[in-house]
Amino acid sequence: MYRAIHQKLEALRSHKAFEFFVIFVIIISALEIGAKTYDLPDLALSATQILDAFITLFFVFELAIRFITEPNKKHFFKSGWNVFDTLVVVISLIPINDSEMALLARLVRVFRVLRMVSIIPELRVLINSLIKALPQLGYVVLLLFIIFYIYAAVGSFMFKDINDVLWGNIAISMLTLFRIMTFEDWTDIQYETMEVYPFSWIFYMTFIFFTAFAFLNMVIGIVMNVMEEEHLKAKQEKHGVEPSMTELKQEINELKQMIKQLSEKA
């Protein structure tokens, strides 16, 4: 009896129609949250409350199916996505009305939209790639901060008398440099300083080259490299883990040694 129910739930979970319906419910949940930000008539508010209750119960049902069909129940909560989905679903059970935790319940319902990331494998790969790239990006951000700090100090010393609002101290200068890096009316700042220092354009050109071009390409390169590794890992998990090139080389070396030993004995 239990095996038959388990097989049916497993078939339901892996069915494409059920996956699309889960995504559809998540989209409806997002639209329902957006609708509540408007002033709605009483009838529409009642409809959204009924819809919210249905969405919450459906998410509980969907999470229960995933837990029941998990071969190893102990490993279910080792996945960060499963823990996130469980927290969102559990906190969503808090009633919105007449509750001290109503604000928390409303905020958590907003995060239902993120459940689409845990449902769609391609989105999971993107998020996992960004998370795994953070340690490498940390060094790039540190180097970027050093460049910012040096240019902010130089800019504050040189241009403070020209415009104290933009270059008054090193903190304000760093905000101004961020504006320059994002190309937000940066030419107005450049032309203002060029009236006093005609060659100050070198300051801006080199800063933009280091930050907007060089560092941006470094970030993109790191993320793309990690993303390729995550795509390869996802394919291996889907189609079965294949031996790596290192393992193949080791096996080939072992075979060569065995052949060499046999030839020496002969």
Rank of each mutant, 00 (worst) to 15 (best):
V241L: 11
R106V: 11
Q49T: 05
D98W: 04
M174H: 12
H15V: 00
R109K: 08
G80N: 05
W186R: 04
F207N: 04
F148D: 11
T211W: 00
M1D: 01
E62V: 03
V83D: 01
F157Q: 06
I119Y: 02
Y2N: 12
V219C: 03
L45V: 05
S200W: 02
K36I: 03
T56N: 13
G240T: 08
E10R: 10
E19C: 02
I96N: 04
A30M: 10
S200A: 10
A105Y: 03
Q136F: 07
V83Q: 06
Y151M: 09
F61I: 05
V108Y: 01
A35S: 02
I68C: 11
I119V: 02
S118V: 10
K265H: 07
S200P: 01
D39N: 15
S99E: 03
W201A: 08
D188N: 02
H239Y: 11
E192Y: 03
I220M: 03
K235A: 13
E251R: 15
K16Q: 07
Q261I: 04
I68D: 06
I5Y: 12
K73M: 05
E10Q: 15
I172Q: 06
L177N: 02
L123P: 07
V25K: 00
I28C: 03
G221Y: 13
L123R: 04
Q261F: 09
F209A: 08
T211V: 14
I50C: 04
L9S: 06
F159P: 08
K260G: 00
V165K: 02
I26W: 03
K74V: 12
N82I: 07
A152W: 04
A105Q: 05
A266K: 10
L114C: 11
V141R: 09
A4P: 00
Y149A: 14
I208F: 03
I55A: 09
L103K: 14
G221D: 09
I147R: 13
V125F: 12
H239S: 10
